[in-house]
């Protein structure tokens, strides 16, 4: 029941956005521009992202993920995480569901955290765009300083959680099921 209400609320909000667009209702020029850009981004990216996640869950074997991204993967797991992050589109909001699916398939925690942080900073198209405005030096410094820190903090967090025998439970939305 609660789920239905949520879906209706979501649909209502989307309808409202659509209507206000058609009727040229813009709540302040800047704010409208930002939210529109972001909403459009999400609408453009999310359907494809979730279809890809669906295909991934159906086709990729658990053993494959476990072998390359799981406990026994050593440093190659991080390399894969970085490569995957570089080609992720969108931003954190796409990285979260992807990371969650990877985790469910057996990727280890530290690799997951590396992927999430790296997807925030190292997305290739965005980095190119960034360098064109801020200069290559700026982007290069950001990359080379954040990479070791991301790896370090991901491994620390992963080890800490593992020691506590913690496994990511599904968040509230899933628990209600």
């Amino acid at each position: 029941m609660k789920k239905k209400i949520r879906i209706i609320a979501a649909a209502g909000f989307i309808l409202f956005l659509g209507l206000s667009y058609l009727m040229n209702f813009s709540p302040g020029e800047e704010m409208g521009r930002n939210i529109w850009a972001f909403t459009l981004d999400m609408i453009k990216i999310l359907p494809c992202a979730f279809i890809l996640i669906g295909l991934f869950e159906v086709w990729v074997k658990k053993e494959t993920v476990e072998k390359h991204l799981g406990e026994g993967s050593l440093f190659m797991g991080y390399i894969w995480a970085l490569l995957l992050a570089g080609t992720t589109v969108g931003g954190l909001y796409v990285a979260f569901p992807v990371a969650h699916s990877l985790y469910k398939k057996g990727a280890k925690l530290s690799v997951i955290f590396t992927y999430i942080s790296a997807a925030a900073v190292f997305r290739v198209p965005m980095a190119v765009f960034e360098a064109s405005f801020m200069g290559l030096k700026f982007t290069a410094i950001r990359f080379s300083v954040s990479l070791p820190l991301i790896l370090l903090s991901s491994i620390l967090l992963g080890t800490y959680l593992k020691k506590k025998d913690y496994s990511i439970r599904d968040g509230e939305l899933y628990q209600k099921k």
Binding site: M31, G54, E57, Y93, L173
Partner: peptide, 25 residues
């Protein structure tokens, strides 16, 4: 089945995304 999973996952998280947009506003 993949499309079903895709839809189910999307429907689950959609409210959180709407929340994000509201916070952003």
């Amino acid at each position: 089945q993949a499309l079903k999973i895709a839809w189910k996952k999307f429907a689950h998280i959609a409210p959180a995304f709407v929340m994000v947009l509201i916070l952003m506003a």
